[in-house]
Write a protein that binds this DNA or RNA. Structure first.
Length: 717
RNA sequence: GCGCUCUUAGCUCAGUCGGUUAGAGCGUUCGCUUCACACGCGAAAGGUCGCAGGUUCGAAUCCUGCAGAGCGCACCA
């Protein structure tokens, strides 16, 4: 028996070495598995693409959970003989990464990106991304993820850039990507547009002011943003509102806080007669709703009174003031003029930018959009409909299935997707202009063309991930073999951001689904159920945890009892429990090596031993069905329970007198049984705890594969 | 406003979509230098399954209502 079994199991001395051995063996690569006879050349394929972590820093516990679940499926399928591919990669995460570097440069050098210039700034971001990439790769390996590194991808590398340009060009030619002057979510802090999904609403206290535009103006209106009223072009009332019916269609002139305005009274069903005075000042350039009202009544959209820097751009006293200051100034003026009628405290949802926290300023801008309602040529359906169909028809199954409703509900409310961003890091929009001319896709050879300054929303490139990583637009081997992928495993919090976009992009570019099953895991919270965050300081670093207790223990702690779609809690104590379990396996191994290392598998089993074997057969069937049914949380728990409380507590204990007794046949049978049960247990546990099981396996005297990783999963008929 | 989820032992959660006596981990109590393991072993206590109805031979599980917690979307003048 190897010396190491005389001491407790030491994950730190084992895990890194074993990962290196696995990697060197090449067996994470399905082609190599075929070459080495670990998978048949005609075996069915099984594929997962790793949701690419952002190159913004380090992995968190959510990543660790994702890796644990995906690696369980990948290792299980590999042991079942599938040509199993798990593609690694990272995401350039445009805004997020740029923001990190901008902050860093501001802090270190007190410079903005404009001080550095586009070229130099992008170089800095790339250097940061490179460094961050290295950290992330080593963290992925620490967790034991059996990824095929020969196929690693990055959302901003050359192959992925080619895919992005190709999709953009095809969408443009199909009329599905268009440039339009529309109201967008402008983030004055990040100086860029963002999509509707990147807006987060925060409830804050606010004041609702009721006022008149002028003394002779007949209607009072209520607003939380008096400073925007210099941009009003109309007052809207509900068509059935008897109070205002006589005024509809009339126009009034006023000078509002030095700004001359002309207001038309319009009737629109979007107005809620019970809110405020039942009359709304319409500011088309600075509110989506008002923009829509203006559309319906043929009013001007172009009365812009706020700049990209959230400053007033009007004649008179307000000019150049920040919106917050202008608000005060307008209220002052209203009071002085006797126009302010009421001031009340209310709670208001304020739109903020997810990444920068800046308050969103809706502004009309010339941007690129993906049209989700226009018919896709040759498909007889819009992108929206193409996103709905595979989920409704169950071609894509979402686990847990109640998220299918959430998904459908979201798609039905979807608006056109603004894909252009005014940031520098990312895929530059593949469009060139020369005067009135425009060229899309490939840079023109002639002089005089200039490329669009903007970059694409990061989700545009990650939306292509399942097929851009497999060689598309070339219709070559990997794409044919591994696409559509089998499983997409990710957090429910990015169902809309990412999962929906992948379905959109894949339906458009390939006319098929990107994956057959979506498994959504929940958030990983701390022991008190709080979200992990920097400000609370309650973050657990998966690499620290793995160093302290072993990656196997971390994986088990994250997986056991963690049902899909439900948040889970993690604490060091919980992980510690599974470190003890790894040690328990270690000691079982010691017992087996001491007592059954010379077991003869051919010996006939006694009646009692046959029963033990049958019980494990039953468990094997259950665990297999659980994994196939995506109940890994149950499979893990059952195996834990079997190894500890059945194999160790009962079977080994009752074996002691037998092994020391005089009945030679019973002894031989028991030795064969123990060797057999333990061999089986290691195989079943391997996807969950790959390191300790592999380490023990390699010390077993009789084994049918060099690596447990590619040993056969036990199939019981 | 529309929609979704949750409420089971002191704590954290399962309960594979109706079937003996409702399970696990942690915690608690008691006892163990038992020759695989103190990162351990043995034993024990602990639950009107949120509340009220209904369906059923049978309900933690299905239906209705109520209460509490959380989440998503929309609105937010």
């Amino acid at each position: 028996m190897p010396e190491k079994f005389l001491k407790p199991y030491d994950p730190a001395a084992t895990e890194g070495r074993l990962y290196g051995e696995w990697e060197k063996s090449g067996l994470f690569n399905p082609d190599e598995c075929v070459r080495r006879g670990a998978a048949r050349a005609d075996a069915p394929a099984y594929s997962i693409v790793l949701p690419p972590p952002n190159v913004t820093g380090r992995l968190h516990m959510g990543h660790a959970l994702m890796l644990a679940i995906e690696d369980i499926f990948v290792r299980y399928k590999r042991m079942r003989g599938f040509r199993t591919l798990w593609v690694p990669g990272t995401d350039h995460a445009a805004i997020a990464t740029q923001a990190v570097v901008e902050k860093q440069i501001k802090k270190d050098e007190d410079k903005s990106r404009h001080d550095l210039g586009r070229e130099e700034f992008v170089r800095r971001v790339e250097a940061f991304a490179e460094e961050s990439h290295g950290t992330i790769v080593s963290q992925l390996k620490t967790m034991g993820a059996s990824l095929d590194w020969s196929r690693e991808a990055f959302t901003l590398d050359d192959a992925r850039s080619r895919a992005v340009r190709t999709v953009f060009k095809r969408m443009y030619d199909a009329g599905l990507v268009y440039r339009g002057h529309r109201i967008v979510n402008w983030d004055p802090k990040g100086q860029t547009t963002i999509s509707d999904d990147e807006v987060v609403y925060e409830e804050r206290p606010a004041k609702l002011y009721t006022f008149r535009y002028a003394n002779d103006f007949p209607i009072s209106v209520a607003t939380t943003r008096p400073e925007t009223k210099v941009g009003d072009v109309a007052v809207a009332v509900h068509p059935d509102d008897a109070r205002y019916r006589d005024f509809v269609g009339k126009e009034y002139d006023a000078v509002f806080c030095d700004v001359p305005i002309r207001l038309k009274i319009v009737a629109d069903a979007a107005v809620d007669p019970s809110f405020g005075t039942g009359a709304v000042g319409v500011t088309p350039a600075h509110s989506q709703t008002d923009w829509d009202i203006a559309d319906r009544h043929g009013l001007s959209h172009q009365n812009i009174v706020i700049s990209e820097y959230a400053k007033m751009t009007v004649p008179g006293r307000l000019n150049g003031m920040k919106t917050a200051a202008a608000r005060g100034a307008v209220v002052e003026w209203l009071k002085r003029e006797g126009l302010l009628e009421k001031e009340e405290d209310i709670r208001q949802n304020v739109a903020t930018a997810e990444r920068t926290g800046g308050i969103i300023e809706p502004l009309p801008k010339l941007q690129w959009f993906v049209d989700v309602n226009r018919e896709v040529p040759g498909r007889g359906a819009s992108l929206k409909e193409l996103m709905l169909e595979p989920v409704r028809s169950k071609k894509i199954a979402i686990i847990p299935d109640h998220f299918e409703k959430t998904y459908v509900h979201w798609i039905e409310n979807l608006r056109d997707w603004c894909v252009s961003r005014q940031i520098w890091y990312g895929h530059r929009i593949p469009v060139w202009y020369r005067g009135e001319e425009i060229q899309v896709g490939v840079e023109p050879k002639e002089v005089g063309w200039t490329q669009d300054e903007d970059t694409l929303d990061t989700w545009f490139s990650s939306g292509l991930w399942t097929f851009s990583t497999l060689g598309w637009p070339d219709d070559a081997g990997d794409l044919k073999t591994y696409h559509p992928t089998d499983l997409l495993e990710t957090g429910y919090d990015i169902l809309f951001f990412w999962v929906a976009r992948m379905i959109l992009m894949t339906e458009f570019a390939l006319g098929t689904i990107p994956f057959r099953t979506v498994y959504l895991h929940g958030l990983v919270r701390d022991a008190q159920g709080r979200k992990m965050s920097k400000s609370l300081g309650n973050n657990l670093d998966p690499v620290d945890i793995a160093a302290k207790f072993g990656a196997d223990a971390a994986r088990m702690a994250l997986v056991v009892g963690n049902t899909p779609g439900t948040d889970t809690r993690i604490s060091e104590d919980k992980v510690k429990g599974y470190k003890h379990f790894a040690n328990k396996l270690w000691n079982i191994a010691r017992f087996i090596l001491e007592n059954a290392d010379d077991a003869d598998a051919a010996v006939p089993l006694s009646e009692a031993d046959v029963a033990h074997r049958a019980a494990l057969d039953a468990l094997t069937r259950e665990v297999t069905a659980d994994i196939d049914g995506y109940r890994v949380y149950l499979a893990a728990e059952k195996l834990y329970h079997y190894a500890w409380h059945e194999l160790a507590d009962n079977i080994i204990e009752e074996s002691k007198p037998v092994l020391q007794g005089a009945d030679a046949a019973a002894k031989a049978s028991r030795r064969a049984l123990l060797a057999r049960l333990f061999d089986r247990t290691l195989r079943l546990l391997h996807p969950f705890m790959p390191f300790v099981t592999e380490e023990i396996w390699q010390s077993l005297p009789a084994k049918d594969a060099d690596y447990l990783m590619v040993a056969r999963w036990p199939v019981v008929e």
